[in-house]
């Protein structure tokens, strides 16, 4: 979808479309709706196997809720900077836009870095992909979310470098808005994951 987001903003601004929405925006919404089901199925797998692991470590053995709350807050904060980046881009204030895009990317990297640290700590405490069902479902779910964030960071940094190379289109607000849509979606998904995985207590973690 990186491709979809960066190419063809023109569908919207150059020709009138049947729905009045730019085609790229429609495509992004369709992609995100589709991605909803992707995360839906992953979260379902996690929930289905909640408390089904036959050996530890269990969630309560490894989770550090305050730590993950902070990194979640960091990711949420990046949605704010993303909004500011879109606003700046729409004002054609490229300087501010770069600052906010970089800030968003930095916050995203902080989140991913935190996730890498968390994964490492869990691994050292004995939780691996193959250790138990909790490990399998947890790492695959949060790992694919992390990959989504990483792709988002790549797109943000690309936007910044494109803007330095003067390769952004006339209405720079459009691609920034599209990547913003993606970014907000990934943030919202994390809120769901954080709530379902970390905050809602597991049924019988010790079983």
């Amino acid at each position: 979808m990186a491709q979809a987001a960066v190419e063809h903003h023109g569908g919207g601004s150059e020709h009138a479309t049947s729905t009045g929405l730019p085609s790229t925006k429609l495509a992004m919404w369709l992609f995100l709706a589709s991605d909803c089901l992707f995360f839906g199925a992953l979260i379902t797998s996690y929930v289905l196997y909640r408390g089904a692991s036959v050996q530890g470590p269990f969630p309560r053995d490894v989770f550090d809720i305050p730590y993950t709350s902070v990194s979640s807050f960091v990711l949420l904060g990046s949605s704010l900077t993303m909004v500011l980046a879109v606003a700046a881009a729409q004002r054609r204030d490229l300087g501010r836009m770069r600052i906010w895009l970089l800030a968003t990317a930095m916050l995203g990297m902080t989140f991913v870095g935190g996730q890498v640290y968390e994964f490492t700590r869990f691994y050292n405490e004995g939780l691996s992909l193959s250790k138990n069902l909790f490990g399998s479902t947890f790492f695959v779910l949060t790992g694919f979310h992390g990959a989504h964030v990483a792709i988002g960071i790549l797109m943000l940094l690309s936007l910044v470098s494109f803007s330095y190379a003067d390769k952004l289109p006339e209405d720079a607000g459009f691609p920034v808005e599209m990547i913003g849509l993606y970014w907000h979606f990934v943030d919202i998904v994390w809120i769901v994951i954080f709530t379902v995985v970390y905050l809602i207590p597991t049924g019988n973690p010790g079983k």
Binding site: S34, D35, C36, L37, F38, G40, A41, L42, S45, L129, S130, N132, L133, G135, S136, T137, F139, V140, F144
Partner: peptide
């Protein structure tokens, strides 16, 4: 996207030792 998740879980079970 639903079969994508199923295939990823199958792939991880086969290749990376998960237990889905």
């Amino acid at each position: 996207p639903i079969i994508t998740v199923a295939l990823i879980e199958l792939l991880f079970d086969r290749r990376f030792g998960t237990h889905f």
